[in-house]
């Protein structure tokens, strides 16, 4: 069994008792955990329906890793919030406008082309983000989670880049499907690099990077892979669609939550 989330005893972290920092830190942790939760949910929808047995296994494994990361991020978010909520309560008992995930990850899974291109665009950012956090975050707890997640996400990124290159430069149809997915998803990518006051606060405390600072490295990686895949970088605005990190979502998120939270809502207070 792999990836079931478990960490050692908690490290001392002065940020957890910094009252002034707490609201922004909590908000930022929800952004991390909600994005991995919702992408994990979308990825898990493929279970048993993949195009090849190897993909069924890889997609289940990716979803499992992402749910594991969610347990860490939302677990820490709950601690930082300090109101006695648990990671499960954050995941299962908040409504859509309290979710802080990127819009990119809540879009429907689409065909395998959309699923892979989405994962590629997200992983390219996720990897840079975790890499920075693991090396530089002023929060020992954040560094610890990021270091663990980074190992798994490095593997996700490697796998997905390879698939995007092979399918982009595969048949006419596989090329067309990937290009369509790229065009459709591109307007959602800018959200990963658009900072707000929360980002400024956590960046100021040295917890996380300024989102915009990751952009050049992301662009370089994306361009390199797209070129090898014979795909064309869209010329549309990358930041046309955003707001998920502030709780303004697409229509899709409500349905995800209706499904995901069903048991917790139907049987309040039960233990599972």
């Amino acid at each position: 069994m792999t990836g079931i989330a478990e960490l050692e005893a908690p490290l001392a972290d002065p940020h957890l008792s910094d009252e002034a920092l707490r609201p922004a830190f909590f908000e930022w942790l929800c952004r991390m955990g909600d994005s991995t939760l919702i992408l994990g949910h979308r990825t898990s929808e493929w279970c048993g329906h993949g195009p090849a047995l190897e993909e069924d296994i890889a997609l289940a494994n990716t979803a499992l890793d992402l749910i594991g990361h969610t347990q860490f991020w939302l677990g820490l978010a709950a601690e930082v919030e300090g109101k006695g909520r648990s990671a499960d309560q954050l995941a299962y008992l908040r409504d859509a406008w309290h979710f802080r995930n990127l819009l990119l990850v809540e879009l429907p899974k689409g065909d395998m082309g959309q699923t892979l291109v989405r994962e590629f665009l997200f992983d390219a950012w996720h990897h840079l983000q975790l890499d920075w956090l693991a090396a530089n975050s002023s929060s020992p707890r954040v560094r610890e989670i990021a270091a663990k997640a980074l190992k798994e996400v490095s593997y996700h990124l490697e796998r997905v880049c390879d698939l995007v290159i092979r399918l982009g430069d595969g048949t006419e149809e596989s090329h067309r499907r990937l290009q369509d997915a790229l065009d459709r998803l591109w307007p959602y990518t800018g959200e990963m690099f658009t900072g707000d006051a929360v980002d400024a606060t956590v960046a100021g405390a040295g917890i996380a990077p300024d989102p915009a600072s990751l952009r050049p490295a992301w662009d370089a990686l994306v361009d390199e892979v797209l070129e090898a895949a014979t795909l064309t970088r869209p010329q549309t605005r990358p930041d046309a669609q955003k707001g998920g990190r502030q709780g303004r979502h697409t229509e899709h998120l409500g349905f995800i939550l209706a499904e995901m939270q069903f048991l917790q809502r139907a049987y309040p207070g039960a233990t599972w």
Partner: peptide
Amino acid sequence: GQLPEGNWITRAPTLERKAILLAKVQDEAG
């Protein structure tokens, strides 16, 4: 056999149950 259990992954009642079920269904594919 992945299908009847896959049917509940997106509705698993806790993050831990979800992770365990995912791990199990992944095993079955393996």
